[in-house]
Design a protein around this nucleic acid. Structure first.
Lengths: 349, 349
DNA sequence: CTGAAAGCGCTTACAG
DNA sequence: CTGAAAGCGCTTACAG
């Protein structure tokens, strides 16, 4: 691999001139410019971005640490992030926390060591001393989907409360009274928020949640499977289950299939996070759709704002209920009113 | 952010000593070592990996360029790559070619500029002059899933021919005679291989493929949808369709649903690439499963071999047919014989 | 055991 | 318009 010195030698100019030509600065005579360009071409010279980064103090690289790359929600998010970042001239290094705080922290550290210009994190849990001190030391960080408690950084997420309440209305409207949930980890804001909204909405209908009707999962597939299996052994079985994410819904469905139970007759099922597969299941699965790609794009833009020294707002996008058949016969026109497509409101300012 | 100079100042030692302590080299007195460690701790000093990389000529970072991150196959692959790389102390920068050659090349260039130690590529198309010259200039590259023509680098992929032939046997055994395919791009080895195997297997059964029964898709969801719609308008409609990947099968299924057709009675469907959703569809979808995660891990190990100057073999893993109900009533014991779980054979050496 | 110094490959004031 | 030189933050021979 050739270095700038090879070019200077071949072109008979100084490194300053080579650098100026390649940076597109003017103030270089056409003659020298031509010689530089020809030499660069002949050598196939490409500037070393590592050296450049050290010198200019920026890597034009963003870090993205997600909770679980196997979760389609985060896949789609990552894709949008990568897309938006690329358009702005940034590469992105991806880290997968696998829902484990220590792995998340290891990634945050590795990315910061590599001097990424900014970091996009969907924190595995609500607390992270490491992230706290990183921010205090001046790291540019934006949280997406989830927040870290007491951390003063812009956060981009979708509200889950409202659509969860709509979902409960939908279920109750269809006659369900014993509604269970497979909740996410209560150490995450999304897991917590969805459970609180679920319980609150049931209470608003005067419904109590019996012992054992709140299962705590890990947001991963296996935990959804196990939780549904436990729910099925309950003496007073629920008639409907709300899974707090995509992957747990998948696991729950597998458990229902394995038990030979039919949806929605034996058990209604609804999920947070939509999936293109849901409409192909028989019956199609009712779900709450997040504006996933938009979350990613908005988060990147917020991070770019931070990097540019501009003020970046936190943003709370809307999620929306997509009613299909998995909770029972649909009452015509029942839910339409509450549904707004990805409208958005602000958290702060 | 503090630099090594801050530590030397606080600890009253030279940069050499700080560097030695942090690199875990011995030959530093306990007294100085203690002072360095205390100062590092107090400052929260973390060595700048960019500077280190420039000095030692290695970034401990791998690049991964995949065709399409929205494709679950590549998601799972990426996850395995990231996992295996992390265990070896490497971070991975992810690039998404989105099945577009020019975007792939842009990523390859950006990653090489950033001096990744090695590059894992699943090339969007069979030819890439850029990759060719990169290899000639000494870049460490391993191909995964797909190859580049005439490129002499280790390649890790799964054989699709054998299981595709098994699938055709399965279809013919169930009485299908008019079998169509939604093939992948013929400029990719996987797309080509699967189509060639499909046509070959039909020929072995004495079956011809009528005009219009070979649809060419892009490996992406929309193309599967469009292709199935076209197949449905054919005067002599096929009774079975083989989709050359996951996403096109998803699109095809959506088209069948939209047309109100039942699987397998109105149309049998099988797919290359398995999905956890397939067993939840009614009927469960017959598919060819690749050892995806293993492909990723093996590819990383091959790349690490290259980086270590060891010889790395190309590897051809086996894929396997997973018979479910989407092609018709299953004849008991019919396919079992040909099925081997992820056995493997070598391409070279 | 310790430090002064060179050097990785760039960019960018500074001087001419 | 051009180049010599400093410096980004490290590591690593080299000398003592």
């Amino acid at each position: 691999l050739s270095a700038i010195a090879d070019v200077t030698r071949l072109a008979g100019v100084s490194t300053a001139t080579v650098s100026r030509v390649l940076s597109g600065l003017d103030g270089v005579s056409p003659r020298l410019r031509g010689r530089v360009l020809r030499s660069v071409d002949e050598l196939g010279y490409r500037p070393n971005a590592v050296a450049r980064s050290l010198r200019v103090g920026a890597t034009h690289t963003l870090g993205l640490v997600v909770c679980d790359v196997l979760n389609p929600f985060f896949t789609e998010l990552a894709r949008a992030v990568e897309d938006e970042a690329r358009e702005a001239g940034y590469a992105v290094i991806l880290g997968n926390a696998d829902e484990r705080p220590e792995r998340q922290d290891a990634y945050v550290e590795a990315l910061l060591d590599r001097r990424v210009d900014g970091l996009l994190i969907s924190p595995a849990v609500k607390t992270s001393p490491l992230i706290q001190t990183a921010v205090r030391r001046g790291a540019s960080i934006v949280c997406v989907d989830r927040t870290v408690e007491g951390l003063d950084v812009p956060t981009v997420r979708a509200d889950g409360s409202r659509s969860t309440a709509e979902l409960v209305d939908h279920l109750v409207g269809l006659g369900h009274r014993r509604i269970a949930t497979i909740a996410g980890p209560q150490a995450t804001i999304t897991g917590r928020e969805r459970l609180v909204a679920f319980l609150g909405a049931l209470a608003a209908h005067g419904l109590e949640v019996p012992e054992g009707h709140v299962e705590l999962g890990s947001f991963q597939q296996g935990s959804g499977h196990a939780a549904m299996r436990r729910l099925l052994t309950l003496p007073e079985r629920p008639t409907a289950v709300f899974a707090a994410d995509n992957l747990m819904a998948l696991g729950a469905l597998q458990a229902l299939r394995a038990a030979g139970l039919r949806v929605p007759d034996d058990m209604a099922l609804a999920s947070f996070d939509d999936s293109p597969w849901f409409e192909l299941i028989d019956p199609p699965i009712t779900a709450i759709a997040q504006p996933t790609a938009e979350l990613g794009r908005v988060a990147v833009r917020a991070l770019l704002d931070v990097l540019a020294g501009r003020h970046a707002r936190s943003r709370l996008l809307e999620s929306r209920l997509v009613v299909r058949a998995s909770c029972g016969e649909q009452v015509a026109g029942h839910v339409g009113a509450g549904v707004r497509a990805h409208a958005e409101q602000e958290l702060e300012d």
